[in-house]
């Protein structure tokens, strides 16, 4: 057995890199509770070490609500065990992650229907209804 193999692989204490982020989430959650202010954190900008992301996911856990959007690839939305803290995981059409964000909100923006699409939607609905009734 080589020297390298005798040394146990230790997972880094995630604490040191996660702490500031968890505090940022905590502050944002307080603002949401007190004033209804929303906040988004881009996890790409975080200097994560190995195991940090997994530790973050373990800490946040899974809550009641989850969702899925299919637009330019899949987007998975999941509320954490702390209501108001959402994980938004964007993938492209090939299944590669293109963004990972935490939204502190009562409703993630990507789940809300974009107002720009309402006119088209109305027109489409009208057309479909008309089609149904003429048949």
């Amino acid at each position: 057995m080589s020297k390298l193999e005798r040394i146990k692989v230790v997972e880094l204490p995630a604490e040191q890199n996660l702490r500031p982020l968890l505090h940022e989430i905590g502050h944002a959650l307080r603002k949401l509770a007190d004033r209804g202010e929303e906040h988004v954190i881009d996890l790409r900008a975080m200097p994560f070490g190995p195991g940090d992301e997994a530790a973050l996911m373990r800490f946040l856990g899974e809550g009641e609500a989850s969702g899925r959007v299919d637009a330019l690839g899949e987007t998975r939305i999941r509320e954490s065990r702390f209501p108001g803290v959402w994980l938004i995981d964007h993938y492209n059409e090939d299944g590669g992650r293109i963004a990972l964000q935490i939204e502190i909100t009562r409703m993630p923006s990507i789940l809300r229907t974009p107002p720009e699409e309402l006119q088209d939607s109305l027109a489409g609905f009208g057309l479909a209804l008309k089609e149904r009734e003429t048949n």
Partner: peptide, 9 residues
């Protein structure tokens, strides 16, 4: 590409 797709982009 839908509006959601555009925003995601």
């Amino acid at each position: 590409v839908s509006r959601r797709g555009f925003l995601k982009f």
